[in-house]
Design a protein around this nucleic acid. Structure first.
Lengths: 115, 115
DNA sequence: CAGTATCCAAAGGGATACTG
DNA sequence: CAGTATCCCTTTGGATACTG
C-alpha cells in the first residue's frame, strides 16, 4: 500500500478543514439554528435568547458568519438603530450539517445518560 | 411572543451543545473520517497519514473519542506492542454529520474561491 | 511503537465599561 | 441598541524529550 493510495482523498480532507474552520467557535451552530427557526433576529435577541454570551464574542461570531456568506446583516432605520440578522440563501447548504448534528446530539444524549 | 414560545426547543439546544462538545478539538472529524475509510489504523498511521499532530494531542483526541463510545482501542500482541483503532457500531450515528460536513465543505471551497 | 511529561505560545472566550 | 475596547483567565495545541 503506497502513500498515494493510503491518503484519503485530499479534496475531502480540505473540505473537512474548511468546514471546520468556518464553524469553529462555540456558538456558530446555535446562532445558525436560531436564525433558521426565527428567520430574523436582532443582535439583542440573539444575545438574550439564542446564546448567552458577551457582546464582544457574539459580534465576532456574527462577523465571521457574514464574511463566510452565511448570514446577512441589515441596519434598521430605527431610533436607536437596530440590526437584524438573517440567513442567506447560501446558508441552506449548511442545513444538512446542522440537522444531522442535532439528530446525532439527541441520540448521543440518551446514549451517554445510560452510562 | 412570550419567552416560552421564543426559545427554540431546549432539547435541540442541548443536542447541539452535546454534539459540539463531543466533536470539539481540531482533529476529531478527520480521525473519524479516516477510520471510516480505512477501518483499522494504528496510532502511528493516524499520526502520519491522517493528522500531522504531536502524539500528545492525538492521544488526547483518541481518548475522548473512545470515552464517547465512537472508537475502539485494541492492543495488539506484537513486539513492540501496537495499538489499533476502529470505529464502533455506534459511530455510524455520526456518519451523516461527517458526510454532510464534507459535502458542505466542498461546496464552500468553490464558493469562497470565487471571491 | 504508543504513549506520557514538560514547557510554552497562541487562541478562545467571559466580564465589564464605554461610545455613537 | 449595537457594538468596541480592555483586561484577564482558561483552554488548546505544537515541539520535544522521555519511558515501558
Amino acid at each position: 500500500m503506497d502513500n498515494q493510495m493510503f491518503d484519503i482523498d485530499k479534496e475531502q480532507k480540505l473540505a473537512i478543514n474548511d468546514a471546520m474552520e468556518l464553524l469553529s467557535g462555540k456558538w456558530k451552530f446555535c446562532i445558525l439554528h436560531n436564525l433558521y427557526i426565527y428567520e430574523n433576529m436582532l443582535f439583542k435577541d440573539l444575545q438574550e435568547k439564542a446564546v448567552k454570551i458577551s457582546p464582544k464574542v457574539l459580534s465576532k461570531e456574527l462577523q465571521e458568519l457574514e464574511r463566510n456568506l452565511l448570514i446577512t446583516r441589515t441596519v434598521n432605520d430605527t431610533k436607536p438603530i437596530t440590526v437584524s440578522y438573517t440567513l442567506t440563501d447560501y446558508a441552506k447548504n449548511i442545513q444538512p450539517v446542522i440537522r444531522s448534528l442535532i439528530e446525532f446530539g439527541l441520540v448521543h444524549r440518551r446514549k451517554i445518560k445510560e452510562k
